[in-house]
Amino acid sequence: MTKILFSDKLDKCVERWKSAGLTVIGPVQRTNISTYAAVDHAAELEFGLVLPDRSIKDLFFPQSEPMLRYTIKKESINTEECLPPAGPRIIFGARPCDASGMAIDDPLFGWDYKDEYWFQRRNESVIVTIACTKADDFCMCTSLEMSPDSTKGSDILLRPLAGNKGWQVDELTDRGREAFRTIADFLHESSEPLAPSAVVENKFDLDACVTWLKNPENFESRFWKEISMRCIGCASCTYLCPTCHCFDIQDEGDTYTGIRRKNWDSCSFALFTMHTSGHNPRSTQSARWRQRIMHKFNYFPGKFSVNSCSGCGRCSRQCPVDMGITETLQEISKLSL
């Protein structure tokens, strides 16, 4: 016997969570784009997607975030700190690769300086993940030691029942248990057949790739130039990626009054490392692509013992020139044979 949430009870749950003061967020299909957004009713949620086009990162680390407002007068400088809008929320229907992406970034946002913007949102969010029953050509969680039902980063894992009837509820954290206590009367104790899990084939040998990347001789390998020749240096891959976390700080306004903002930035851009002198230490696209791969599978794990990739496949799915992490790691796997 396990806890079951039947689909037809979901609208009641949404209502209950809302009256308990939670913002309910989930996957939605908008004009030409799917994303995670706040909803009022369960009917607005779209559970049929392999995964939304936009990642869950947007909810924790938005593309542009005000940090402080400033006014400079003759004798004074006034600053007013801006913090993220407070309020508890429940994200219902995250994908395992999105939820784990947030857990991957936790140590990064907390190691030397605790990023309040990130952690306030993290602490106020309950992530209810739905295990995947379908995958596409670009999904690659299994190549990264994860799976269509990974629990990493989730507070609740829901396993879909056969016939879209609902979900089996696996409570993973206290925060998850608490959120589900408020809807306890909508849950059932029974045992229902589960829908088969998605099958995601293993695409590359991660260990072999990591060994190759760690070998300093390969830093200057011709491989980097060859693999990245068609890369046009946009930020589609980094901005859609749940784990890419680079940002820039910009002041908007004039000398006397304005707003300081934290904006996404990307290692794919030439401007990212451009010095004021005009010198650019990563002057070619191949050096920039190498940085992205090295950062994710060498430097980041070197510091935080986890790869900076959850295998969502968005980078390859959306790349305008059909590149992506998958192809690069597949080619590296071949090189290391």
Binding site: Q63, S64, I232, G233, C234, A235, S236, T238, Y239, D248, Q250, E252, R261, N263, W264, S266, F269, L271, P320
Partner: peptide, 30 residues
């Protein structure tokens, strides 16, 4: 993300107007 610019054969400027910050013609914020 500037994928539109990067994918465009006509957007060849070495320094796009959005990347100029002295002065900052265009807000970088999205």
């Amino acid at each position: 993300c500037y994928a539109c610019r990067q994918a465009c054969p006509m957007c060849y400027c070495r320094r796009c107007i959005v990347d100029s910050n002295q002065p900052q013609w265009i807000n970088t914020s999205s």
